[in-house]
């Protein structure tokens, strides 16, 4: 009898232990299932604070709905690294931040042409709209700030009315120029252009010629595009600086370093707000998620959020009048 009781107890203990093991297994299965079904976004991003700010903007906004895994892309990152990350995380969507990420992911798609690619969104990369057609199942947000955003912010600050803006551009940027002409027209601003060939032995001479032409047409402001063929040390020294200094015109630039007082070139910089760019990207990601992880009628967007920087030393040096009381609306004032 006592032996029976012992056996029964032993049996029940074993059964209890088995039940616990089963429960544990069930929990593990559920956890794994949840992981497998989790909405993961794989972020391929270039190194740097600006790009990590973009990720913060996205992950802050989508907390609880989409989790983010990151691969920082540097010179040593290969297509195989991307393949490994995709296999590991099984992402529902891929976010490409910076030109190096866009290039690497394009190579990844080319290396595995028969695979199904999740939707991807490219941002914080220069001229992203020129690269997106080469990526399957992709959309994006441009990095370049349209002139209209810059000039609308700037004219509020300026005492003199701004009616005409001049820009020198290369012919491959014709569509960008045309688009900006239309946006500016809606705001009552005329954008006039000095068109250059894509390549030329005497590019600096041609820049100087076109810039002088714009000044002669009586433009109120010069808009400097982020194009390394147009803005480099030689071009600055030979073409831009001599004419800009003489004309005393305000210059809108797209990079903060071009506002340096020593350089004596730019007076206003309108640059992307990287956190805001991340929040904007999160709304694109949400739309993709709501459409069952598909890109449906989502064109390439313009950046919405910007930071304004003003160099008042240069404004003062060129005797350009501005409303001091409105400097409180500017993100950064260089004195």
């Amino acid at each position: 009898m006592a032996g029976d009781v012992k056996v029964t107890l032993l049996n029940s203990m074993i059964l209890e232990k088995a039940a616990w093991v089963k429960l544990l297994l069930l929990v593990l299965v559920l956890v794994n299932t949840k992981l497998a079904f989790a909405n993961t976004a794989l972020v391929l991003r270039a190194p740097g604070n600006d790009f990590s700010e973009v990720v913060s903007g996205m992950s802050d906004d989508l907390e609880g709905d989409i989790s983010f895994s990151e691969l920082v892309v540097d010179a040593g990152t290969r297509v195989g690294d991307v393949a490994k990350q995709i296999k590991k995380h099984q992402p529902k969507v891929i976010v490409l931040i910076g030109n190096s990420s866009v290039n690497l992911y394009t190579k990844y798609q080319q290396a595995f042409p028969d695979r199904e690619f999740p939707p991807s969104i490219a941002l914080a990369a220069l001229f992203v709209d020129k690269f997106i057609p080469f990526i399957k199942n992709a959309t994006g947000i441009r990095y370049e700030i349209p002139l209209v955003t810059s000039v609308v912010n700037m004219r509020l600050l300026m005492k003199k009315e701004i009616k005409k803006v001049g820009v020198v551009y290369r012919s491959w940027m014709q569509d960008i120029f045309d688009e900006n002409v239309a946006y500016c027209r809606a705001e009552g601003i005329e954008l006039v252009g000095g068109k250059l060939p894509n390549k030329d032995r005497n590019m600096n001479r041609k820049i100087k010629h076109q810039l002088q032409g714009l000044i002669n047409q009586g433009v109120d402001v010069i808009w400097l595009l982020n194009d390394n063929q147009l803005i480099n040390q030689k071009a600055l020294k030979k073409a831009w600086l001599p004419l800009i200094t003489r004309s005393k015109l305000p210059v809108i630039v797209g990079i903060k370093s071009l506002l340096a007082t020593k350089l004596n070139l730019g007076s206003f910089a309108i640059v992307p707000d990287h956190y805001g760019l991340g929040v904007q990207a999160s709304s694109v990601l949400l739309e993709i998620m709501e459409n069952n992880w598909r890109i449906v009628d989502q064109g390439i967007e313009h950046p919405l959020s910007v930071k304004q920087i003003v160099n008042v030393t240069i404004l003062n040096k060129r005797s350009i009048q501005y409303r001091k009381s409105l400097l409180s609306q500017v993100d950064d004032v260089i004195n």
Partner: peptide, 18 residues
């Protein structure tokens, strides 16, 4: 809803027809 973080980001939404 299309949410923005700053008041001045609302105007570009209208400008670009977003």
């Amino acid at each position: 809803l299309k949410r923005v973080t700053k008041t001045e980001d609302l105007l570009p939404l209208l400008t670009f027809g977003s």
